[in-house]
Computed example of a mutant assay.
Amino acid sequence: MIKVGLILGIAGACRTDELINLTVDDIEDVGSSLIVKIPNTKTKIPRIFVVTDVGNMLELFQKYLSLRPPHVSIFLYYKAGKCSSQPVSKNTMGKIPSVVASYLKLPDVACYTGHCLRRSSATLLADAGVDITTIKRHAGWKSTTVAEGYVENSM
């Protein structure tokens, strides 16, 4: 769940609410990529993004998806090795970055919140040379100032 949350969260600059509300029906597997629709956003403007097959991301996602019942939330709790019908909470989803930071033994793990997924997405795009208009469209920001505030300086 943590890996799939990171993949979708960073690839789509997703808020934790957007992730926990994703259903199996919002994701279309087209073989070489996933088309992800975020129908319910904070700004009320639906977004679409694509996850391409880098590394084993699609294989990992497909394996995770095969464990889910159809037409339900993507992120469900597991108990005793079985998938429950209870969706993962916003708080659990928001802790994914701190869990990863802890695993990587990074300092100040409490600083890594669910919002880091949006910040990481914007920063990765900017580092790849993507223009600010495209970054704004990708994350659903209207303001250039807000979008620029999400882009971190990185080496």
Rank of each mutant, 00 (worst) to 15 (best):
R118M: 02
Y78S: 13
C116R: 09
A126G: 01
K105T: 13
S121H: 03
K90L: 12
C83R: 12
Y103E: 11
M93L: 07
K95E: 10
S85C: 05
V109N: 07
S84Y: 09
C111L: 06
V100G: 09
M93F: 06
G114R: 08
Q86W: 00
L106P: 06
S102K: 14
I74D: 02
S120C: 02
S102H: 10
L76Q: 12
A101H: 03
S89C: 08
L76K: 11
I74Q: 09
P87Y: 13
R118Q: 06
G114E: 04
Y103R: 15
L104I: 10
L117W: 11
T134R: 02
K90C: 07
K90M: 10
S121A: 08
A122W: 07
I96M: 12
H115I: 14
L125G: 00
G81S: 09
S98I: 06
K90G: 02
S84D: 04
G94L: 06
S98V: 09
G129Q: 03
H115W: 07
P107H: 08
C111W: 00
T134S: 07
L76Y: 04
V130N: 01
C83V: 15
G114T: 05
T113F: 02
S102A: 09
C111H: 10
N91V: 12
S73A: 08
D131K: 04
L76P: 15
N91H: 06
A110E: 11
V130H: 00
H115N: 07
G114M: 05
M93G: 01
L76H: 06
L125A: 03
L117H: 07
K79Q: 12
K79A: 13
K95T: 10
L117C: 04
T113C: 04
P70D: 04
T133P: 01
K105S: 14
I96F: 12
H71V: 05
V100Y: 06
I132S: 01
T134G: 01
Y78H: 10
T92A: 12
G94I: 08
A101G: 15
P70E: 07
T92I: 04
Y112H: 10
S84W: 07
C83E: 15
D131W: 01
C116M: 13
L104P: 00
V99K: 15
P97S: 03
S84M: 10
L106Y: 14
T123C: 00
V100C: 13
A126P: 00
S102D: 14
G114W: 09
D127M: 00
L106W: 14
V100E: 08
G81Q: 09
C111E: 12
H71N: 15
C111I: 04
C83K: 05
C83H: 03
S85A: 12
Y77W: 08
K90W: 06
T123D: 03
G114H: 07
R118V: 02
I96K: 04
D127T: 00
L104H: 12
G114C: 05
K105I: 09
